[in-house]
Amino acid sequence: MAKKSTEFDFLDPFQSLNIPIAGWADGIKEWAISNRENIQPIKNQLNWMINHIEDGLQAVPPVIMLVIVGLLAWQMAGRRVAIIVLACLICMGLLDPRAWGLAMTTLSIVVTSVILCTIIGVPLGILAGKNNIFQTSMRPVLDTMQTIPAFVYLVPVVLLVGIGNVSGVLVTIIFALPPIVRLTALGIRQVNPSVVEAARAFGATPGQILVKVELPLATPTIMAGLNQTIMMSLSMVVIASMIAVKGFGNEVLRAMGRLDAGKAIVGGLGIVIIAIVLDRMSQGLGQSERERGHRHWWQGGPVGVVLRAIGKDTSH
């Protein structure tokens, strides 16, 4: 805080009047350093989660993984999307011998971040959808999270939890959380009030209204939020690689340092392909029941085929 010792000037008051925000931020840094021990348990929990997800993804042989992802895509978004997804993944595998492993590492960070964003974001969104004061006070916070350059909070996060996957996930959550909160709130607010009134008139509790009426009707919007959250967390992997997160982002970062165009394009294309795959699959979830022709999820896709094959009635 370089405070100039000039006289107060009415025409240029900002020279002498300043909010010491940078000083406060430094204070936060001090606080972060002194409280490192306290957050170690949380860090360990997160680390455990990330490692297990990554180990799981890496342990599956690529061909089996292709089958799993293909079936999942078919179930979530239909046969056409499944074919696109499989083609993309095969292309990605052909890029480079290491590409598949890097993809799984990147995916594990994205999956962990998205799970945590959903756990945090959906309840916050429901609150914001129900409560105007909460909505109004959340808005500037979400705006800040979405627009503040990542480099600004990279340093405090690293000071607090150190480099590595955990801080990578935290940084990703900060950036990717807003859309799911916003769209959950929007989805809840868009529910036809007369339907909610009808539910009240038949004696439903607020909890029943939420679970049986509001959340099902808000689901397509919430899924659109989830899709945005997935995309944004993927866009953080390069920045997160600066704090020692492995995967495609790290490839791009290292290639940049060595001016290695070939390596950069492998990393870059890998990220793009994962983005396409995750986007197409998660968009399938955002279809409303009406668009799917009022079929339950188990009536379509591979599950539907299996159920029909074993002769179970799937009509209801």
Binding site: N192, S194, A198, A199, A201, F202, R290
Partner: peptide, 11 residues
Amino acid sequence: MVFQNMALLPH
């Protein structure tokens, strides 16, 4: 109760 706009649950 019966409502003017039906207010059935669409899902």
